[in-house]
């Protein structure tokens, strides 16, 4: 469904992604794990077109999408819940969700998806007329995910959905991610919490300083000695 071929992305002179190749098939949850600065978020930003690659190709359903401006990539069916949530602090919760559906014009469909988002995250319904900036961290994360779903994406990019959340909330968020996947959305999940990520993902890639060092099924990665040492904290 999505394929990255030898992607090189730069921030100015900094070579952030050094030839990343990966693929995600329809219906999968694939996770990218790695340390801070390994290039996980950059990979997502590259797919979304925020930081286009300098070399290499991004294929979405066999169409080359690198070079397409970010605002048009959403229309193709890829949406992202960015790292640090980046909700709009001065828009209400409802307005934030409406922005998620910016590219769509089917009023009824948007209303249905709004309902679906409120059912996934009942807290958001309670706070629908409150400003985004007044929500707690966990609620903001729910809003960011709900907002990304409002584009009715076929492929959802999730960047650190568990960051800064209480453990109870982390479990809840991951359950919902799995739930979204079961409803038919393919998911690329970036996580520092490798244990959680590998527990719901089908496959995973391990990133180290801009390169993929390991690719395997989630179960195999969990058993991998290097992964256990470096990312799961198991000696």
């Amino acid at each position: 469904m999505l394929q990255l071929n030898d992607i090189h992305t730069y921030y100015g002179n900094i070579h952030a992604l050094k030839g990343i190749s990966l693929h995600i098939d329809q219906g999968e949850i694939v996770t990218l794990i790695g340390a801070n600065g390994a290039g996980k978020s950059t990979t997502l930003r590259t797919i979304s077109g925020i930081t286009p690659p300098r070399r290499g190709r991004v294929l979405f359903e066999d169409q080359e999408i690198n070079g397409i401006p970010a605002h048009n990539i959403v229309k193709l069916g890829i949406s992202q819940s960015p790292e640090g949530r980046h909700i709009f602090p001065n828009l209400t919760v409802r307005e934030n969700l409406e922005m998620g559906a910016f590219t769509r014009n089917d009023k009824q469909g948007i209303e249905e998806d709004m309902e679906r988002a409120f059912n996934l995250f009942p807290r958001l319904r309670e706070r629908s007329s409150q400003r985004g900036g007044t929500l707690s961290g966990g609620e903001q994360q729910m809003l960011a995910i709900g907002r990304a779903l409002m584009a009715r994406p076929r492929m959802l990019l999730l960047d650190e959905p568990s960051m800064g959340l209480a453990p109870v909330l982390v479990d809840q968020i991951f359950e919902i991610v799995q739930n979204i996947n079961e409803q038919g959305t393919t998911i690329l999940l970036v996580e520092q919490n490798a244990l959680m990520a590998l527990s719901i993902a089908h496959r995973g890639y391990v990133l180290q300083t801009g390169e993929i060092v390991l690719a395997d099924s989630a179960a195999a990665l969990r058993d991998n000695e290097m992964v256990q040492k470096a990312y799961l904290g198991i000696e």
Binding site: S48, G49, I50, P69, A70, H71, N72, V74, K75, S79, Q80, P82, H86, I87, F88, P89, N90, L91, M99, G100, F102, T103, R147, A148, A151
Partner: peptide, 14 residues
């Protein structure tokens, strides 16, 4: 208003 508050996030919204 969204663009005024967060330009990159706005682009991610399309």
């Amino acid at each position: 208003r969204a663009t005024a508050q967060d330009r990159d996030a706005s682009r991610l919204m399309g």
